[in-house]
Design a protein around this nucleic acid. Structure first.
Lengths: 100, 100
DNA sequence: CATTAAAATCGGTAAATTCCGATACCTTTG
DNA sequence: CAAAGGTATCGGAATTTACCGATTTTAATG
């Protein structure tokens, strides 16, 4: 758990937005053909469309958040779904409160 | 409270170290002539010496942490003391846990 | 008021980050 | 196996960050 990498991943408005959208996928994204929001999250394409960034940028941002352990990626056929790693996020909050 | 600015301020190893040192000043810094650790914190010079960085860099880092509301600065004569803003840090932890 | 000490600000170079378009890599499907 | 859709990776231009040394500001003191 590299603290600096986590904070770097969070040091960007769009990446924070993405994290926020993924908190309530059904509220921010259209229904998907494959996979459930609650189980595996949202596919890259939907996140890309909503973000207004290019596909490559979104892909990089998502894998950056994943490397920081803030997101979990699941490959479903040709799609990759991303969802929040709620446990890691909670742990980060606790860590800041009593160890930062 | 600009989230991104806070996370940027935390995205650097030395700045995280400084925050950690300021958690227990008496453990990490020599006694000071003026001002008490618990009241106003530690003067820039002591932080600079311990950090190994130049004076200008440390001064910038400290004011960056202050702009993010993570530190509180107090001018005492020719010295500026910095201490942690424990309330803001706790608030940040809570925020991450249930709003990030 | 001149000197000195502490801290802040300025100006700059090297490194990292932001974001893009192009390309390569996987899957599914005909 | 060829084509197509979804995603990842590569290469690069523009911006930002990491530090530094030099200079300026602020405050104390002779």
């Amino acid at each position: 758990m590299d603290q600096v990498e986590i904070f770097k991943a969070l040091s960007n408005k769009k990446r924070l937005e993405i994290l926020a959208w993924l908190k309530e996928p059904e509220k921010h994204f259209p229904k998907q053909e494959c996979g459930e929001f609650s189980k595996t999250g949202v596919c890259v394409g939907h996140i890309q469309q909503k973000s207004g960034l290019t596909q490559s940028t979104v892909s990089e941002y998502l894998s950056m958040l994943q490397r920081a352990d803030l997101l979990i990626a699941t490959r479903l056929g040709q799609w990759t779904h991303y969802k929040r790693n709620e446990e890691a996020i909670k742990k980060l909050g606790l860590h800041i409160q009593d160890e930062l």
